Simulated scan of single mutants.
Amino acid sequence: MSPTRFASEHRWLYIGAIVLLVALVVVGIIRYEKVRTNNKATEKAEQLADAAEAAGYPRPDVGTIKRTLGDDGGQVCEKPGSSLKSALWKMNISNGATGPGMRPVIGDTETIRAEAKILEIYCPDKLDEIEDKIADLKTENTVRR
C-alpha cells in the first residue's frame, strides 16, 4: 500500500484530527480569557474589601463584591456623574424613610467616599466625574465605628 493511497483512504481521519485540534484551541482561548477575567475581578474585589476594612468597616464578602461589580465595576462605573445617578445616590443618603418622611441628612464622610473608592479601583478614569459632586456635599463623621 503506497503512502498516497493510505492518505487518501484515511482523509477523514486527518480532517477529524484537524477539526478536533482547532476546537481544542478555541476552547482553550475562551477558558483562558474567563480565568484571566475572573482573576482580575477577584483582585479588584480583594482591593475593595481591604479598603473597606481600612476605613473601619467590617470586611465585606469578596465573593459578593466580585459577583456584583465583576472586573469592570458594573453599574457603578456606567455614567457615574449623570443626573439620574446623582439623584439616586443622594436619595440613598437620606434618613431612610420613604415618601413624605424622607429627609436629607448630613452624610458620613467615609460612607460617601465609598463610591469614590469603588470608582478609584474599578474605573479610575471616571473618578473626576463624581469628585466635584462629593466636594459639594456637607459631610461629617456621623457613624460610630
Rank of each mutant, 00 (worst) to 15 (best):
I118V: 14
W89A: 07
M91G: 06
K66M: 02
G73Y: 10
K79I: 11
D61W: 04
E131C: 04
I112V: 15
S94Y: 01
A52L: 09
K117Y: 09
A52V: 08
S86A: 10
C77L: 07
P60M: 07
N95Y: 06
G74A: 10
R103E: 14
A87K: 10
E46F: 00
T42G: 01
G81M: 08
T68Y: 06
A87I: 09
D72C: 03
T109P: 00
M91E: 09
A54K: 14
D71G: 13
E78H: 13
L127Y: 05
D50V: 02
N92I: 01
T64V: 10
E115N: 12
G107M: 09
M102F: 05
Y57T: 00
I118W: 03
A45H: 07
T68R: 14
K90D: 15
K44W: 08
S83Q: 15
D128H: 13
E78F: 10
P60E: 04
P80C: 09
P100H: 08
T98L: 07
A55E: 14
D50H: 03
R67W: 13
A116L: 15
S86H: 11
R113M: 14
R103S: 15
T111M: 14
G56P: 00
G96D: 03
D71W: 09
L127M: 04
S94L: 00
R113T: 05
E46Y: 05
E120W: 10
G73E: 04
T68W: 04
C123Y: 15
W89V: 01
P58Y: 06
A51H: 05
T68A: 15
V76T: 12
I112L: 09
N95K: 08
A114I: 10
A49P: 02
A52P: 03
G101E: 14
P80I: 10
R103Y: 03
I112K: 07
V62S: 03
N92H: 14
A116V: 07
L127A: 11
V62Y: 04
P124E: 12
Q47I: 01
R103M: 15
I121G: 00
A52Q: 08
D71V: 06
I121E: 00
G70P: 00
E53M: 10
W89I: 01
T68V: 12
I106L: 03
A52M: 12
A87C: 06
D125E: 14
L119I: 07
